[in-house]
């Protein structure tokens, strides 16, 4: 077997996505001459960072056939908690971050336990989590937009640059690489895919589906926490509404990246390209001076289109079937 062609085949999805991405860039550069500037592209990459970081962990839930809708609330809460630990309780910033990460992991663990042990659909559990985490965030911050002025090293996480490139971009790419390796090269990754592909078969070959899922939701919460810390540092602000609606962007990136919500397959790199695409679409709307309200509209449409494409349904066939349904002929008359 030719290894080169095998490698090519394995990354078909990602390559095709990359093609679409390039196409989108061409269109955008034709629409606006402000698009292909270093400033603008850096801006896009920067705004993609938070979604990208969340995506690296959130992608595991769909691979097992579940979903995590709590990532945005978790991120907002993480920023607020980190600020409380550092600036109200006066902890060292590293300790504060570590404690925040542990809390994030605990919440993800709880999501996983409730979903697996009590057989509650994941979207219900994580939606309820999204709500109560938002409540806790509001309660702790008293609903205020708290400005974070110190400590300086903490702020460097978000606004610092290394070799001219913002640090959050390093963080994102590190997490993408780690997540890609975790999914494709480790025992845990294999088990995650197996649970999503056929839980019964996986169980009969020695995989513990519950344990796997609990870890999956824990990872999802941890990356959301990391995104929240980066966000707090980047915006120098802790605010419960800071990430509102991001879960939809995260799902969009994952779905666009070719991951089926039915489970059994997924691509971290694809999701990253999906995140960049979401970033470009938003950027395009900005460049066209469209109001920000177009953002959820675009996201919603992109999700539906990507889902239908992932599902492999032929749209003309469905429409034809619908128009040919009994009663349609009479209705037309």
């Amino acid at each position: 077997m030719n290894t080169k062609s095998a490698l090519f085949k394995e990354h078909m999805v990602e390559l095709r996505l990359f093609g679409v991405l390039l196409g989108l860039m061409v269109v955008l550069s034709l629409i606006s001459d402000r698009f292909l500037t270093v400033d603008n592209l850096t801006n896009v990459l920067w705004s993609v960072c938070l979604i990208g970081i969340m995506t690296t962990g959130a992608i595991y839930a769909p691979i097992t056939g579940g979903i995590d809708l709590s990532v945005a609330s978790m991120a907002a809460l993480a920023g607020i908690l980190a600020n409380v630990f550092m600036n109200t309780l006066g902890m060292n910033w590293i300790v504060a971050i570590l404690i925040t990460l542990v809390i994030g992991a605990g919440i993800g663990w709880l999501n996983g336990v409730v979903t697996t042990k009590f057989l509650v659909p994941a979207f219900i559990v994580t939606m309820a989590a999204k709500t109560y985490l938002f409540g806790v965030a509001m309660l702790v911050s008293n609903g205020d937009q708290i400005t974070i002025m110190e400590p300086a090293p903490f702020l460097q996480i978000g606004i610092g640059k290394l070799l001219g490139i913002p640090i959050p971009i390093y963080i994102m790419f590190t997490l993408v690489i780690l997540s890609h390796i975790l999914l494709k090269k480790t025992v845990f990754g294999r088990r995650t895919i197996a649970v999503g592909a056929n839980e019964v078969a996986a169980k009969l070959t020695g995989v513990n589906p519950d344990r796997t899922r609990i870890i999956v939701y824990t990872i999802s919460s941890v990356t959301a926490t990391i995104a929240g810390i980066v966000m707090a540092s980047l915006t120098q602000q802790a605010y419960a509404m800071n990430a509102t609606g991001y879960e939809l962007d995260v799902i969009t990136a994952i779905v666009v990246g070719g991951t089926s919500l039915m489970g059994g397959s997924g691509s971290v790199v694809g999701a990253l390209i999906g995140a960049v695409m979401v970033g470009f679409i938003n950027n395009g709307l900005n460049l066209l001076d469209m109001p920000s309200a177009f953002h959820p509209i675009a996201t919603g449409i992109v999700i539906l289109v990507a889902l239908i494409m992932n599902q492999g349904v032929s749209v003309p066939a469905v429409l034809k079937k619908w128009f040919a349904r009994p009663g349609a002929a009479e209705a037309a008359k």
Partner: peptide, 26 residues
């Protein structure tokens, strides 16, 4: 969308939620 394209309910309605919320603002 749910019946004819066989898509999961929550994700379809989450998508239309985004679309409608945006449209309402517009």
């Amino acid at each position: 969308f749910i019946t004819h394209f066989k898509l999961p309910e929550f994700i379809v309605t989450l998508a239309t939620r985004g679309i409608l919320a945006g449209l309402a603002l517009i």
